[in-house]
Amino acid sequence: MKIVFKYTKLGKLKFISHLDNLRVLQRALRRTGIMAKYSEGFNPHPKLSIAYPLSLGVESIGEIAEVEVIDDINISEFIDKMNKCLPDGMAITEASEYADNRAVPSMVCSQVYRFTISHNDQDSVDAAINSLKGLLDNDYPIIREKKKKNKIVKKEMNLTSFIQSIDLLSTEMLDIDIQIVIHVSDTGSLKVEEVKDFLYNSLNGVKSIEVQRIALNFIDKVI
């Protein structure tokens, strides 16, 4: 039986890497006593995968993972048992059985983030709100460096072509919350740091930016 679940990664847990995150989930599953299915091969590992990696240092309330278990289990029982075994900051908020043959990670089409931008003064806040609409009008080239056989290969990309939407969520004092949807394709996606730099460079009077991943979108319903 395959189960897809949504979970949080908050507080100190934002400092654990993708691989460590996978390990935390695997160990929690072991502690529940629910048996996972294992892959075949020389070094068998439990069939558990995280839909899309999250950058180190970013919190999330909408992580998605998929697991295959041996015996059928009631979904709410699965959630209860897992939540008793997960560390503080990580909790399953939703889960459902998954009958599709396609692997969940291959179905991610975009990531949704909330950026909380703190400004130095009210003028900057007003200016930021006004300029949000036009942010995507122009190209914004970014350079990526890749190591290829001891050579550093540089690649130029247009950041704004990866951003599907920018929306204002709320304002509070000198903080504004915006939601940004970032496209995920075969050619890749954007890194949180790149979007942060983009915001710092495009807006004036920005003091600090906090980021949280809100959700992942899929080409079809997975959960």
Partner: peptide
């Protein structure tokens, strides 16, 4: 965010 393996210093493990 700047140091290697930050989870060395966070505590909060199970």
């Amino acid at each position: 965010m700047r140091v290697e393996k930050p989870a060395r210093y966070t505590g909060g493990e199970l």
